[in-house]
């Protein structure tokens, strides 16, 4: 019994310690960026994280948009309200699916890559040799990836939304024959700049910080073995996904919920 309690205590202490390490790393990395020549590092990481994620983002966006349009159409057609496909599509995408799905894909595509890369750097002692040379790995390796992630994910989310709406147009308007006038005017009538687009993008920024933070920390904190890198990569994807969904609920609650 005492042993069990002790194990629980150790587990809790470990968790708290790792949260503490993650926070100090985050603070130092963010603090450490503004320096000469760091822009080039960030640009390179935006290429790795953002541009190389474009293909998966665009493909998923198109299929999600078209599937949504199809589902909305079949249900709304029963009430003769096919034109509401545009409104439903835009609101669902801008408020929820756009930020969340993009962040999940980003965690799988870019987050895991960050963790594996940094983990391998650690296990091959590149990070320690940087320290030996007087280069701070937090500034050289961690900070550019954090900033690049925070810049890339909102961009990807905006692109995701546009492509998904285009997918909805292709299926809804071109194929199923929803009246384009009603489709677009219904959308512009309801969608608000800050209420829908702004808050969606805000969510995306929060997710970006979460995902890249988790990815970078898991890599930086991984055990320097092949197994450790594997575990850390898995953890990145799992923790990111769970955090995205949990935080999304909290954000939606504070942003949109109206209590009577």
């Amino acid at each position: 019994m005492l042993k069990l309690t002790r194990q629980l205590g150790r587990w809790a202490l470990d968790r708290i310690q790792s949260i503490g390490r993650a926070t100090t790393m985050f603070a130092i990395a963010l603090w450490g960026l503004p320096g000469r020549g760091d822009v080039a590092l960030v640009v390179r990481q935006i290429y790795n994280l953002g541009i190389l994620s474009l293909v998966i983002i665009i493909l998923s966006a198109f299929s999600i948009g078209s599937v949504l349009a199809l589902q909305f159409y079949t249900q709304l057609a029963r009430f003769g309200a096919q034109e509401a496909v545009g409104v439903g599509l835009a609101l669902v995408l801008l408020r929820e699916l756009g930020p969340v799905v993009t962040a999940l894909l980003f965690a799988g595509r870019a987050g895991s890559a960050i963790t594996a890369e940094i983990g391998l750097m650690k296990s091959t002692e590149q990070l320690s040799s940087m320290e030996m040379m007087g280069v701070d790995p937090l500034r050289r390796v961690v900070a550019p990836r954090l900033w690049a992630g925070v810049i890339s994910l909102p961009m990807l989310t905006a692109i995701f939304n546009v492509v998904a709406i285009y997918g909805g147009v292709v299926v809804g308007v071109e194929w199923l024959g929803v009246d384009p006038g009603g489709f677009w005017s219904g959308m512009t009538e309801v969608v608000e700049l800050w209420e829908d687009i702004g808050k969606g993008m805000l969510k995306s920024v929060v997710f970006a910080v979460l995902v890249t933070w988790i990815a970078v920390f898991q890599g930086y904190d991984s055990l320097p073995t092949a197994e450790g890198i594997g575990l850390a990569t898995t953890r990145t994807v799992v923790y990111s996904s769970v955090m995205i969904l949990a935080v999304d609920f909290l954000l939606t609650l504070t942003m949109y919920a109206q209590f009577q």
Binding site: P154, L156, A158, V162, W184, M187, E189, E192, L193, I197
Partner: peptide, 16 residues
Amino acid sequence: AGILALVFLAVRVSGI
């Protein structure tokens, strides 16, 4: 492309 996408959303979708 990201900025253009945002502008597209603002102008075409929210109709500001």
